[in-house]
Amino acid sequence: MIDLSVNIGNLKLKNPILTASGTFGYGEEFSPYVDLNLLGGIVTKTLTLNPRVGNPFPRIVETSSGMLNSIGLANVGVGKFISDKLPFLARLDTKIIVNIAGFTVDEYVEVVTRLEDAEGIHAYEINVSCPNVKEGGLEFGSDPTITAEITEKIKKITDRIVIVKLTPNITKIEPIALAAEKAGADAISLINTYVGMAVDPYSRKPKLARIKGGLSGPAIKPLALAKLFDAAKVVTIPLIGIGGIMNACDVAEFMITGATAVEIGTANFVDPSVCQTIINDLTNYCIEMKIDRIQDIINQLEIE
């Protein structure tokens, strides 16, 4: 029997496969395609204090082995999430990780405060790294001091696991990762999307209404691995790898490089049942590689 379980702090996941925020709705959208109870965990679409309709269209564009998005944190808001979305999630036999964002430090705290009264949530993922909103977001995530301040204030008001999701749109990720760790983060997830753009050569117009968006998909996998590698060298808290993961071998690459778990994002768009396929294939990978416990490959990169 292969043991796929991993631990994020004291949160035990039945396997390392989580869904990436913004690519899996509020879970229910994927119930026709995936047995949600098989997942290591579900990370919800980013929640903000108030509902947001999001950015104007076009919001998405396909690029070479990837896509750009500029959704702008469209979401139902924390209140409606608790009343309409959470009851479904809370009944599942998987870990529920609620991704949250704010436009001020206080707003982050306020969102978590509202969620603290709700049952069925196992962890928070703090989005300090969305590239698609004018206010805050990215600026927070590229500043170690503010990242630390948000993390610290949230840790003060919750006993739940706090994961800080980092942006790759910085020169060096190490200072931000260290700041999050020092401020008490239980784990770090990385990376959010890379800022990118695309232009229509015939109309000379940008392909996104907001001009720039976040690049995701297999195109960014090597970049994500490099950022993970850098972060793994400096922090000791668990890392959750994100960026272009399409299959079980990609998962293994991230785990070997230092990830305790991973998040599957854009791949869900291409194949809504991909998470289930990956979990099955991860077992097969372990059998093939004669590994009894998947956690034994974490951080086992062999460098000559």
């Binding site: 959208e29 076009p58 998405i60 809504p272």
Partner: peptide
């Protein structure tokens, strides 16, 4: 419209 997923997750196909 353009759509990335077709199942209501990407929020790219709004009108």
């Amino acid at each position: 419209t353009l759509m990335a997923c077709g199942v209501g997750a990407c929020l790219g196909c709004g009108v």
